[in-house]
Write a protein that binds this DNA or RNA. Structure first.
Lengths: 170, 170
DNA sequence: GACCATAAGTTCTATTTTAGAACTGTCAAT
DNA sequence: ATTGACAGTTCTAAAATAGAACTTATGGTC
């Protein structure tokens, strides 16, 4: 696959993967949410090569997730800060962290705890339905093609047929 | 960085990135949630090379996200289905899809719409606090070191000092 | 019995990406 | 004049990926 065409796929997941779907971007964004803003600080705290860091920051700026803000003239120096589009990635980051908390912790326990300033308590993120407020599970969701759907199904024909037969026989 | 050590980092995000943080894994998992289960079907609907698909499926099985279930003997054939650990990735998938819906759609609109069977309405996913039920934003969350935290801060010293000076001067 | 199709991989080479280290340019402070 | 901070760029070697062909096992067709 050509990764520069992924962002044009008729799939919101694929388009988001074009932005954050490599090994470094999510780690860089984690640092952004932890208030890291400068090139050398990203480099030192992540151990990423400078080459790749420059490349990824450029990509995140191009996608409008980060913005370069000058913090000094002579020599020109910039900080990388999250745009609103970048801040909106927070639910993705939090759901990833939460899955890691549940399924990937070792005996020592969670590396980080999260306090909700609004209510003052330690919390976990929960994903709910915008309409009824109930927690979401994969089985309770049905998918419909939207206005931007591709004509042919993304599902391979033979798989479609098998699914159809299975539905008929049930 | 050696990617095989990422899963041992004292960071739940890094450990999850070890599982899903490459370009193909999330796309493979999208297919799983759309009921794709067989090798050739993954291959045909994604256009991934067979080599890489075999590799990624093996990795997802190793991490306990997918399970191989035999569906025929002679010759032995398997289907790949989501385990509970895999099903628990649903909030990550949904938050990624939602971000793409909001920030990456073109003029034609969303490729997919989601209906919540429980309430019967089209919905968007919302991330809320488990304790008070309020929607979460990055600014309303404060991070504390947990029992599994590393001794030294993940934040580079010079950045820490800058943050300290900034806090004192405010 | 020879031939083709299905399915789930494996093997091969060529290309692309990444790692790791060194280097560049600009300015401030000593 | 020298050193250090900062934000990159440039280089080569190593690793990952793409793309296509091949393998193994079985069942059905001519």
């Amino acid at each position: 696959m050509k990764w520069d065409t992924l962002e044009e796929e008729p799939c919101s997941l694929a388009r988001t993967v074009a932005v954050i779907g490599d090994r470094w971007s999510l780690l860089i964004l984690r640092e952004c949410f932890l208030r890291i803003r400068r090139f050398d600080d990203f480099q030192a705290s992540l151990g990423i090569t400078r080459h790749l860091l420059a490349d990824r920051l450029k990509k995140l700026v191009r996608f409008g997730v980060l913005r370069k803000i000058p913090y000094q003239e002579a020599p020109k120096r910039y900080e990388y800060i999250l745009t609103q589009k970048g801040l909106d990635l927070y639910p993705i980051i939090m759901s990833i962290v939460h899955w890691g908390n549940v399924h990937m912790v070792d005996a020592r326990g969670r590396p980080l705890l999260h306090e909700h300033k609004t209510c003052g308590k330690m919390f976990d993120p929960v994903m709910v339905c915008s309409e009824c407020g109930e927690p979401l599970s994969a089985k309770a969701v049905h998918v419909h093609p939207g206005p931007g759907a591709r004509k042919s199904s993304p599902v391979h024909a033979s798989a479609r047929e098998r699914a159809k037969r299975a539905a008929e026989s049930s």
